[in-house]
Amino acid sequence: MEWAPDILGDDFEACTFPSAGPDGVERTATLVRHVPGARVAAAGGADLAGGRRSRAVLFLHGWSDYFFNEELAEFWAGQGFAFFALDMHNHGRSLQAGGHGGYVADLDDYDAEITGAIGIIDSLHPGTEDPPTVALMGHSTGGLIAALWASRHPGIISQLILDSPWLEMHGSPAVRRAARTMVEPLARFWPEAVIRLPERGFYWRSVSSAAEGEWTLDDNYRPPRAFPVRAGWLSAVLSGQSRVARGLNIDVPILVLISGASATGMFWKESMRRTDAVLDVNTIALRALSLGRTVTLERIDGALHDVFLSAPRVRADAYARLARWLRAYVLDDGGTA
C-alpha cells in the first residue's frame, strides 16, 4: 500500500485502493490517515505503524462530503487512537472524471471498501500481535452506512459512534414508506435519473468560510449545494432506513450525538446557525433505539448538523461528552468495557 502526502498537509497521508462490491464491480476509495509525527513523539506517544497504538478509529463522511476536519483527527489522537478517514467511492478524493458524484445504487456496495480500509489498518500493526481494535464513526448518511455495515459484520469493530446519523426521514416512518412507494418504480428502470428537488444550501452556508461559517471547504470535493439526487441513490437510502426501523441488534456500545433542535424550511433562518438544518433530530433520537442493545444518546444544544463543525463552545461540549463516553466504554488495554 503506497501512501502519499494528503491535501490537508504534513500531518496527513492518503492512499487510493480498489475494492469489488457484491455486484462484482470494482470501485475506488481513498483512505486518509493522521500522522502527527513530532508532536505525538514529543508527548510520549507513537503512531500505529510504530506498533504502540492498540486502538484505531475509522471515520465515514456524509453524502456529498469528504474528510477535512483536522481537529477531529487531533482529538482522537489525544485519546490514544490512530485516526483514519475513508473518502468513499464517488466522493471527495475518490471522485472519478465523468462519474456521478455521490451515487450508489445499494448501500451494501460500500461494504467492500469499509472492510478493505479496516484490513489496511490491521496491516499497519507490525509483528504477530493482535491487530488494533477499531472503532467506527460515521456522520449523516455515513452514519447510516456505518450502522448497516456494523450490523452485517459483527465482531470486527469495538465501538460505533454516530454524528447526526440519517436513520429516518423527516416526520415519521410513514413519510419514508410513502417516499419508497414513489421512488422505487423509477429507481428500478431509471436508477440514474435525477429527481428535481428544491436546492437548499443552508447547511453549507452555516459551515463554509466562503459564506458564514469557519471551515475551509474545497468545492472540487464538496459542492455547495450537494450532488444531484438520483432515484437509485434515494431508493438505497430509504431501503437502508427501513432495515434500521426493523432493528439492527448491533452488539457493540453505540454513541449517537445530535443537535438539541432542528430548523428546516425553504428560507434561511438565523436559528440555522445553531440547529440541525438537515435532519429531524427528534425522529433520529427515537430511531436510534433500533440500533442495538447499548445505545447512548447525547443531545448537544446549539449544534449544527455535523456536531463537530459547530461553534467552538458547542463542539467543545461535544468533544467532552465523547471523551466521557470513551472513558466508560474503552479500557486502557484497548478492549471494550
Rank of each mutant, 00 (worst) to 15 (best):
residue 104 V to T: 15
residue 117 A to D: 00
residue 29 A to R: 11
residue 328 A to H: 06
residue 75 F to D: 00
residue 260 G to D: 05
residue 195 I to H: 03
residue 265 G to I: 12
residue 217 L to E: 06
residue 13 E to N: 12
residue 180 R to D: 06
residue 334 G to D: 11
residue 53 R to E: 00
residue 115 T to P: 03
residue 249 N to G: 09
residue 301 D to P: 02
residue 277 A to P: 04
residue 196 R to K: 15
residue 120 I to G: 05
residue 20 A to K: 08
residue 63 W to T: 05
residue 316 A to T: 13
residue 114 I to E: 07
residue 43 A to M: 04
residue 100 H to E: 11
residue 271 S to I: 14
residue 174 A to S: 09
residue 147 A to T: 13
residue 190 W to K: 14
residue 132 P to S: 01
residue 333 D to S: 14
residue 28 T to L: 08
residue 168 E to G: 09
residue 208 S to R: 03
residue 210 A to F: 07
residue 133 T to W: 04
residue 320 A to T: 09
residue 242 S to L: 14
residue 239 S to I: 09
residue 227 F to M: 07
residue 56 A to I: 12
residue 106 D to P: 12
residue 85 A to K: 12
residue 228 P to F: 02
residue 147 A to K: 11
residue 6 D to W: 04
residue 20 A to V: 10
residue 247 G to S: 04
residue 238 L to E: 02
residue 311 A to K: 13
residue 169 M to Q: 09
residue 210 A to T: 11
residue 69 N to W: 01
residue 152 R to K: 13
residue 62 G to T: 07
residue 47 D to R: 10
residue 251 D to A: 08
residue 58 L to R: 06
residue 201 G to P: 03
residue 286 L to K: 15
residue 186 L to R: 04
residue 46 A to L: 01
residue 11 D to P: 02
residue 118 I to S: 04
residue 95 L to T: 00
residue 45 G to C: 05
residue 184 E to C: 07
residue 115 T to H: 06
residue 178 A to R: 13
residue 300 I to F: 02
residue 325 W to C: 00
residue 244 V to I: 15
residue 309 L to W: 03
residue 209 S to Y: 02
residue 108 D to H: 13
residue 100 H to R: 09
residue 136 L to H: 02
residue 327 R to H: 14
residue 280 D to F: 02
residue 113 E to R: 01
residue 20 A to S: 14
residue 154 P to K: 06
residue 156 I to Y: 04
residue 270 E to L: 06
residue 252 V to E: 03
residue 40 V to C: 14
residue 110 Y to F: 14
residue 245 A to Y: 05
residue 121 I to N: 08
residue 304 L to S: 10
residue 45 G to D: 00
residue 143 G to I: 10
residue 272 M to C: 10
residue 214 E to P: 06
residue 313 R to E: 04
residue 168 E to N: 07
residue 57 V to S: 01
residue 251 D to S: 08
residue 6 D to S: 14
residue 294 T to W: 00
residue 48 L to T: 12
residue 96 Q to Y: 11
residue 315 R to H: 07
residue 209 S to D: 11
